[in-house]
């Protein structure tokens, strides 16, 4: 009984510290788990409501919404299983939206097969290097070439995020094991 109550109080402390940290870091939303279309719709609707009450201007609100949809649909379509490295449909991952004084962060994390790291990093680095005009031209070229994949994506997500936000995508791969890594990406909207 004593152990239980200790564990319980530790857990209560944990809940409080989560709460405190979320408030301190202005985290509007945090989620870990399966990301499917219903989750995407729920979070985007919820955030849209929260944003409507905020003082941010319309393009910023819409960009936050936009980046959220692209990021959530990326996890849903492209997350791999951490043990097998095989595609998981629907994918799982972590998803966070936080507020800063000037704007908003959308942060996602999900396992990807190590074999895909180079391809993902190259896609992001390519667009991160471009200035506004280059990215507009690149977007036009890519939308013409694009074919909807089996997973239902157009391959335009990263390009569009950088084009709309005007900010680079921060990303990192944390090795989980020989098969998969945890892919974290952070986008700033201001």
């Amino acid at each position: 009984m004593k152990e239980n109550s200790f564990a319980n109080s530790e857990f209560m402390d944990f809940v409080y510290s989560v709460h405190e940290n979320m408030v301190k870091n202005d985290i509007m939303l945090i989620y870990e788990g399966e990301v499917n279309q219903d989750i995407t719709k729920t979070f985007t609707t919820l955030t849209q409501k929260n944003l409507e009450e905020s003082e941010a201007n319309l393009p910023i609100k819409k960009r936050v919404y936009h980046v959220m949809v692209e990021c959530l649909q990326n996890i849903g379509k492209h997350s791999d299983n951490a043990e097998s490295g095989l595609p998981e449909i629907p994918g799982t991952g972590i998803f966070m939206v936080s507020k800063s004084t000037e704007g908003y962060y959308v942060i996602t994390g999900n396992p990807v097969a190590n074999s895909r790291i180079d391809e993902i990093a190259e896609m992001i680095e390519t667009v991160n290097k471009m200035d506004k005009d280059e990215i507009k031209a690149y977007y036009k070229k890519k939308i013409l070439e694009s074919r909807i994949s089996e997973k239902g994506g157009a391959g335009l997500g990263f390009i569009d995020i950088v084009k709309k936000t005007g900010n680079k995508i921060d990303f990192h791969f944390q090795k989980i094991n020989d098969i998969a890594s945890f892919f974290v990406m952070k986008t700033y909207i201001n």
């Binding site: 936009h66 692209e70 939308i143 694009s146 909807i148 335009l156």
Partner: peptide, 12 residues
């Protein structure tokens, strides 16, 4: 009012 990137391809 809003469309995602996959829809942008279909609009084209």
């Amino acid at each position: 009012v809003y469309f995602n990137t996959a829809s942008s391809k279909l609009i084209l």
